[in-house]
Simulated scan of single mutants.
Amino acid sequence: MSRFDLNRYKSFLHQLVAEPSVSCAVPSWDMSNQKVIERLANWLTEHGFECQIMPVPDHPGKFNLLASIGAGDGGLLFAGHSDTVPYDEHLWQTDPLTLSEKDGRLYGLGATDMKGFFPAVLEAVKDLDAGKLKQPVMVLATADEESSMSGARALAAAGGLKARYAVVGEPTKMTPIHMHKGILMEAVRVKGAAGHSSNPALGNSALEAMHEVMGELIRYRQDLQQRHQNPGFAVSIPTLNLGCIHGGDGANRICGECELHFDLRSIPGMHNDQLREQISGLLTPIAERRQLDIVFSTLFEGVDPFHQDKNSELIRTCERLTGQEATSVAFATEAPFFRDLGLQTVVMGPGSIDQAHQSNEYIDINQLEPAVETLRRMIEHFCMEETPPA
């Protein structure tokens, strides 16, 4: 295979950065990813891939791309998301939608998280001889990872992803990641009754009920942290953060309504649906005892924790190719969706998560060639050699 072509990489990334594809729960920011998907599909088609552009159900303007080359019942999937977070151009020193280079860095919105992964994949497959493939090579680009993860959820719901190994190219400096925490974000709304503060019988305080709710959540957090620990994480226990609270409208009125938002970051072995059921079970007795309504709702559907056995073929191969031991991260990715579909999965890509979600985002040029070489060698190992079943 030919050497890494930095100018070619920069050309691809320049075009991807120039196509804004913000996904956001705020409608005024949310936009389509169609142009990014179409560019990727055109490039991959030129490399001999068969491409499917799939609309995401119930999300107009949002699309997934699945491209493949070669045949077989296994294969290697390179997966990434096509969207970015919102941006404030006034906080950027350069145009966020124009790729710029300075001091060995490429600056632009999504340069690290994670449009920069796709040009690395394109470099890795540019001289690929389909006739030498014993298993297929696939490339997946998803929608809305930064907001609802609707693209990955749609793919998981459809099933039938015929691959054996998945590389989720989030920025990890090419360190293999074999586990990360899960996350859920929830709201608790207490609906009491307002009244004059001179007589408590005239109302039913939502604030006082919320005080009891918060106490119950703190006790629940303590219980979780006693029962669940994983020394593989920097913070070895699950966390529950009481993030914000709003309620009441005056010191001389009984509070009629109060709302609390919190997040819970779980560790492998815990499941979000079970956690929600447990929390709901804690709130029901409070509502009954105080004779008011407590509504428990989801702010973000959430992501379950991710864990891939360190002794699996994929993780051992990534450790060998990179010379780095697999470890954990605190941020969540789309990896659990691929793992649930039966794929051995690793999170690994160029760039640093420290640059993600902030102004003046960049990717270090010196990380790119080693990353491309690792991806090429993964293709050789998993798709050109005889490998044991997963």
Rank of each mutant, 00 (worst) to 15 (best):
A79R: 06
V137W: 11
F117C: 05
S68I: 00
F118W: 12
L76S: 04
K134T: 03
N64H: 07
G116Y: 06
Y87V: 11
G116A: 07
F118H: 11
D88G: 02
K102E: 13
W92L: 05
T98G: 02
L66H: 12
M138L: 13
S82W: 02
G110Y: 11
L133K: 11
T112Q: 14
S82K: 02
Q93W: 09
A79Q: 06
G74E: 04
P119F: 10
I69M: 10
W92Q: 05
L99D: 04
G74C: 00
N64K: 08
S68R: 13
G116P: 03
T84I: 07
G75Y: 07
G80M: 12
L106V: 00
L122S: 05
M114V: 01
G74K: 06
G72T: 00
S100F: 08
Q93K: 15
D127A: 11
K132R: 15
N64Q: 04
L140M: 13
E101F: 04
V139Y: 06
L109Y: 08
G131Y: 04
W92A: 07
M138I: 00
K134Q: 13
G80D: 07
M114S: 07
Q93M: 13
A67H: 01
D129P: 08
Y107F: 15
V121E: 12
G110L: 12
L97V: 01
G80R: 07
G75S: 06
D127E: 15
V85A: 13
A111K: 11
E101L: 11
T94W: 15
T94S: 15
T84H: 10
G70S: 00
M114Q: 12
F117I: 03
G110Q: 14
L65S: 02
T112C: 15
L77W: 04
V137D: 10
D129L: 08
D129C: 12
Y87D: 03
G116D: 05
L109R: 14
T84P: 08
T94C: 14
A130N: 09
H81M: 09
V125S: 06
A67P: 00
T94E: 14
M138S: 15
A67R: 03
A71P: 00
A120I: 01
L76H: 04
L65W: 07
G74V: 00
G70A: 01
G72P: 00
P86R: 11
P119R: 13
E101M: 08
G104L: 10
G131S: 05
L122P: 02
G72K: 03
A120E: 04
A124G: 06
W92P: 03
L128E: 10
W92Y: 08
T142D: 06
K132Y: 05
A124V: 02
T142I: 01
S100W: 11
T112Y: 12
K115L: 14
T84N: 11
G74T: 01
H90Q: 14
D88Y: 11
S68H: 05
F78H: 04
A141W: 03
G74N: 03
E89H: 08
L128F: 12
G74Q: 07
Y107M: 08
K126M: 09
K102T: 06
L77R: 07
L91N: 14
F78W: 07
E101Y: 07
V139I: 08
G74W: 02
D73Q: 13
A130S: 15
A67S: 04
L91H: 14
L109P: 02
